[in-house]
Design a protein around this nucleic acid. Structure first.
Lengths: 161, 161
DNA sequence: ACTATATAGTTCCACATCGCACTAATAAAG
DNA sequence: CTTTATTAGTGCGATGTGGAACTATATAGT
């Protein structure tokens, strides 16, 4: 579900300088909801963004990593990753080998089928992105992207502290 | 779960100018995950961000609206809203009256208990926000917030088209 | 080497989310 | 006024998500 929508400005309460942070997380939450819906509308029925995201990560970053690595990258519990990887393996989109370096863990590899599926999915999404680009210019995206990345990295680093 | 992490740059594929949009949604998805986790860690056990967000909306925007209004505001199906409102009503944080203007619908009101709960929750969250503000300055938030709001409004408007 | 601790992954279970079908009520069409 | 279509909310079932506990392996301490 969506994010807070918090804004304690109705009372003289907390530091007003911090209200912007609440507003920020509110917008982020609603945008995550909207973008997930947009993506899933174009993906084949039953394929969730969570699964698609993993295929993307395996291509964009690197495959041959452990399920736990992936769980950390996506900020989900390892049980969730076990479930999602099982779905992808069942569809033949990824392959799970035992890790030769560590008998406890496995290594996740994307298959040619998984690669094809992901590339076709991106093609399906392109029209929506193009339509969005027409009403929301790319320079605005460029303006905020570095800040978002920095915020993500900061919060990611603070996660265990 | 988190968002795409899409970046088709591995091949000469789609318009490179559009890649930034994928990167944007990727960051938004992960940040939504991180902020939800941060919030829920401070909320009482069993209270999810989804419930807290509704209380916030009822105070910040306005209460006395229908469940369907809320479902649209948060971009969730009405069945989800029914469920969440039932939880909040069970805790005495909201009250559901029948709508005198329309026998089919109801009106959602926040109770004094709900108001107190929300205000106390915000107090609990403040230390985390303050800690974040120390490492991620407010001017960076100000720099991206207007763009995020504009993007959210744009995508929200395009939702039914 | 042996014990204690930590880690990777899974299983089991609780629950939030959401699609589908249904009821009740309103609105529109004739 | 009667019929039809639309809308608000709910019950039910399927599934994604995530916590607790467990097994198997690896690492640290002695």
């Amino acid at each position: 579900m969506a994010e807070p929508d918090l804004n304690p400005s109705h009372q003289g309460g907390p530091d007003p300088a911090l209200i912007a942070y609440f507003a920020l997380f509110n917008e982020i939450g609603i945008l995550a909801q909207l973008s997930s819906a947009m993506f899933e509308a174009r993906l084949p029925p039953g394929v969730l963004v969570s699964q698609f995201a993993i295929l993307n990560h395996l291509i964009r970053v690197k495959d041959g990593r452990t399920p736990l690595d992936l769980a950390r990258a996506f900020q989900v519990p390892k049980t969730t990753m076990t479930h999602t990887l099982a779905l992808l393996e069942g569809r033949g989109h990824v392959r799970l080998d035992t890790n030769p370096r560590d008998g406890r863990s496995k290594l996740v590899w994307i298959t040619p089928d998984g690669r094809d599926f992901r590339n076709r999915a991106i093609t399906m999404l392109m029209p929506d992105i193009e339509a969005l680009a027409r009403v929301f210019p790319a320079d605005r995206v460029q303006a905020m992207l570095p800040h978002l990345t920095a915020l993500r990295e900061t919060m990611d680093a603070r996660r265990d502290a």
